[in-house]
Design a protein around this nucleic acid. Sequence first.
RNA 1: GCCGCAGUAGCUCAGUGGUAGAGCGCACCCUUGGUAAGGGUGAGGUCGGGAGUUCAAUCCUCCCCUGCGGCACCA
Length: 648
Amino acid sequence: MADVTLTLPDGSNRVFPAGVTAAAVAEDISKSLSKKAISATVNGAHWDLQWPITADAEIAIHTLKDDVQALELIRHDLAHIMARAVQDIWPDVKVTIGPVIKNGWYYDFDRADPFSPEDLGLIEKKMKEIIAARDPVRTEVWDRPRAIAHYKALGEPYKVELIDSIPGDEPLRMYWHGDWQDLCRGPHLQHTGQVPADAFKLMSVAGAYWRGDSTRPMLQRIYGVAFQNRDELKKYLNFLEEAEKRDHRRLGREMDLFHFQDEAPGMVFWHPDGWTIYRELEDYMRRQLTRDGYREIRTPQVVDRKLWEASGHWDKYRENMYITEIDEEHANEKRVNALKPMNCPCHVQVFNQGIKSYRDLPLRLAEFGSCHRYEAHGALHGLMRVRNFTQDDAHIFCTEDQIEAECAKFIDLLSRVYTDTGFGSFDIKLSTRPEVRVGSDEVWDKAEQALEKAILSIRNDYEVDPGEGAFYGPKLDFKLTDAIGREWQCGTFQADFNLPERLNANYIGTDGEKHRPVMLHRAVLGSFERFIGILIENYAGRMPFWIAPRQVVVASITSEADNYVREVVNALQGAGLRAEADLRNEKINFKVREHSVAKVPVILACGAREVDTRSVTVRRLGEKATSTETLDAIVNELGIAARAPDLV
RNA sequence: GCCGCAGUAGCUCAGUGGUAGAGCGCACCCUUGGUAAGGGUGAGGUCGGGAGUUCAAUCCUCCCCUGCGGCACCA
């Protein structure tokens, strides 16, 4: 057999007989490396130590210190170890698939009775036994008939189906962890003992559809998380705790911002402080839109089905729409209406009033449009997913040639808004033409290129999601990253060649003929509700001063200071601040604690000393130290600090 | 919509086949206290809704609603 030349990361070459395994290469390098080795990279591919190498290659041997490969393998092997543990305990459970995901893995099982939280403890214990046994991992390539016969004999129908769906030119690989066998593309560790036994945890059980298809059986999914060592696991568990502390549903209740109740599921009851945040954000957005040449409009909530039929919503979107009928006793004619789930058809109606000229384009019509959508009840989630929400929506009517400039203008607006609201960076995703679509290829070419060019004018990295565009046009989605690294999709920019056609929008061109405008659907925040939820979680309730619903509390230390406190509050309110007095018969300790817990950014305490010197003692949220300032100085200082970022 | 879990005072939660309890909060009283909880007294619940089993249901059974964790969905 011929030899192969392997090039190591340090540039040196070693020659082996063809078919050598990465394990043998590691062994050749050093005894200790061969023990520590977990996998290899061979010509860029993640490679099992047992797989043969049949051609010259660049090779690197990995140990647990190589983050990417180590995490991949630890999690992947744990998926197998968990499945083995489950079948050890309950032999009749059917196995399906168990991929690696962010922070861990899951495995889906078919089992008559769901797993209980106590079962997780049992499984975890069994997994630790398997790890302690240091069972060797072994792999073989099987041919299809053998694999299918094997799984049929075992009564594992899901595996049979999986084999059927694997492309014919791909080898079928079997893996054994000890005696337990699973179909798997690999790679895997050398033995189960290479998994750190104290750095994983089974997290939860949940139902999940087989192959993600809601018409197929519901399986039982167990989620686990795993890291390279116990500290990393701890760090992750702390992160989860941190995320829970930031939960906007909890903070919304604690800070008295909003509530939900059974009579209106998925619809927000905004309380005064929550609504203050909302209004501050809305005022800010209105200024931004005005600055960028948008005209604000307002369109009806309840609209006859005829319009929804014309727009296509009645056909494509009806199960998400609230349908209303006028009470027949009071109406001469029975009309079927729908609460608007989107603003676009109404905006076209505004555009269609009167005759539009090319001189009117681009026409930017904005609406803080309240929409109702009947979302599946399992989808509802605090402010993040609601049934009644308000979009910072706008539709830009323009020519195809104007798409690029409008897109660039939009990205500029969006960057400003995200920066001003405290989000440093955002990612862009371009979704291109789907298989089922309207419009000619030329128009799609033009639209996709326009969006692409607009992105490239501000940055050179973006993700492309081929085929994921809307049927009416390509779109950009904007995802921002919050303070603890979570991504939220908020902004969107969509080119639409369809709706103007359906709703017969047109303008008179330079040639005196009628033309179809393109319609650009776009939103920066997405919905106010959701964006405020994200803000709350991003800031853990400690809102930036300009948007904080309660900016200043002036607290009396003794009742002697009450009148002075009132004077201070008046002065602050006069400067436009949201200030309130706390004159309650409580000690200053109590007041400081309560307002700190309520995340009021500034507490001004006033006792006899302050009254005498016409000053206040300032305590800022998150700081222990206090300072004393004159009344005039603090009013001036806080007045400046309270300006919205665009008004500084 | 699907799988699982849950719903008891404003909040967090305990509890029992014989119609309920704590802490915090709230009200009132005492206390005028200098930067994260001063003390006392008191009010407050049709135990998510409906039906059933039972002498008796907050507790057991069924249906529904809502919430939570996922899945599916997310123009």
